[in-house]
Amino acid sequence: MHIIVCVKQTPAGENVSVDQNTGCIIRSGESALNPFDEFAIEEAVRVKEKTPGSKVTAVTMGPPQAEAVLREAVARGCDGGVHVCGREFAGSDTWATSYALSQAVKKLSENDPSVLVFCGKQTNDSDTGHIGPQMAQWLGWPGAAFVRKLEAVDGKSVRVQRLMEDGYDVVEMPLPAVLSVIKEINTPRIASLKGRLASKKAQFPKWSAAELGCDPAKLGLDGSPTSVVRCFTPPQRASNTVKIQGETAADKARNLSAALKEAKIL
């Protein structure tokens, strides 16, 4: 089985700058592996460990420095990685990004029907949660989002628990398939010394749009159907706090209930 995990380099700090003309994040500060992708990597590696003869390939799209997240993925147990890189991808929204990543997955899975793709449920810079479902659509493969548990997987099918508002569904689908996992699915491992050493030696091919056979009209800022109209920091709201008095916990509870009733909240 070929297991593919999509990862992204995102801003590591809270002070994120945005280009006011394009609406794109200025990625010149400190960056790191998207926290939600840690769970996708861990689950991909766990499937590999349970499935003899399988391998895990990490895929990322981004500028040259994004190679760092591929090294992190190898350090955590992936066997290799591919870097989708080029000026033509700059400014892509989720539609264009998922298209480019799906082209990379097609190339990696050519003539191999036993493929399982993992994505984190979202990224911490845009929070859309679009990439996994959009990739499934581009590829024409079955997919499931908000996966909280893998119940069974073999070279032909996968059965998962998909989180819903009122519980969860059990979904079984044939391979190839795309899964977006949530953080409840596992506890990511810490990279081992052996993994760190392997990541330093790893070589990652860089694939351009031409090598992936991409339609240029579907890439980058010009090929993105969505755009950011305005980015701004919401003004801080003045806080209005009231300390509930009372000698005992019961007194405080009664006083709190009375205050809420007076405010017509209860």
Rank of each mutant, 00 (worst) to 15 (best):
residue 1 M to K: 02
residue 3 I to K: 04
residue 4 I to N: 07
residue 6 C to A: 13
residue 7 V to T: 10
residue 8 K to S: 00
residue 10 T to Y: 08
residue 12 A to Y: 00
residue 13 G to Y: 07
residue 22 T to Y: 09
residue 22 T to S: 15
residue 23 G to M: 00
residue 24 C to N: 10
residue 28 S to M: 04
residue 28 S to G: 11
residue 32 A to K: 00
residue 32 A to H: 04
residue 33 L to H: 03
residue 42 E to W: 05
residue 45 V to H: 05
residue 45 V to D: 01
residue 47 V to Y: 05
residue 48 K to F: 09
residue 51 T to V: 08
residue 52 P to M: 13
residue 57 T to K: 09
residue 59 V to A: 08
residue 59 V to W: 08
residue 61 M to L: 15
residue 63 P to H: 03
residue 64 P to M: 07
residue 65 Q to W: 00
residue 70 L to T: 03
residue 71 R to Q: 11
residue 71 R to S: 03
residue 74 V to C: 05
residue 77 G to P: 01
residue 78 C to L: 08
residue 79 D to V: 04
residue 81 G to F: 04
residue 83 H to L: 01
residue 84 V to F: 07
residue 89 F to D: 12
residue 92 S to L: 01
residue 93 D to M: 06
residue 93 D to Y: 13
residue 94 T to K: 00
residue 97 T to K: 00
residue 98 S to H: 09
residue 102 S to F: 00
residue 104 A to E: 01
residue 106 K to L: 14
residue 107 K to P: 07
residue 108 L to Y: 07
residue 108 L to G: 02
residue 111 N to V: 02
residue 113 P to Y: 13
residue 115 V to N: 05
residue 117 V to C: 10
residue 123 T to D: 04
residue 125 D to C: 06
residue 126 S to I: 02
residue 128 T to L: 06
residue 130 H to C: 11
residue 132 G to V: 06
residue 132 G to M: 00
residue 133 P to K: 06
residue 137 Q to S: 15
residue 138 W to Q: 13
residue 139 L to F: 11
residue 144 A to Y: 02
residue 144 A to G: 07
residue 148 R to S: 14
residue 150 L to F: 15
residue 152 A to E: 14
residue 164 M to V: 11
residue 168 Y to E: 04
residue 170 V to A: 05
residue 174 P to C: 04
residue 175 L to A: 06
residue 176 P to T: 11
residue 178 V to F: 12
residue 178 V to L: 11
residue 182 I to G: 06
residue 182 I to D: 02
residue 183 K to W: 09
residue 187 T to I: 09
residue 189 R to W: 04
residue 191 A to I: 07
residue 193 L to N: 06
residue 195 G to C: 06
residue 196 R to M: 14
residue 196 R to W: 08
residue 197 L to G: 05
residue 197 L to F: 03
residue 197 L to D: 02
residue 201 K to N: 11
residue 202 A to Y: 03
residue 203 Q to K: 14
residue 205 P to W: 05
residue 207 W to I: 03
residue 219 L to S: 02
residue 223 G to C: 01
residue 226 T to L: 02
residue 229 V to I: 12
residue 232 F to P: 05
residue 232 F to R: 11
residue 233 T to Q: 14
residue 233 T to Y: 11
residue 237 R to A: 15
residue 238 A to S: 15
residue 239 S to N: 10
residue 239 S to D: 03
residue 242 V to D: 15
residue 242 V to I: 15
residue 248 T to W: 13
residue 249 A to Y: 02
residue 250 A to K: 09
residue 257 S to Q: 13
residue 264 K to H: 10
residue 265 I to L: 15
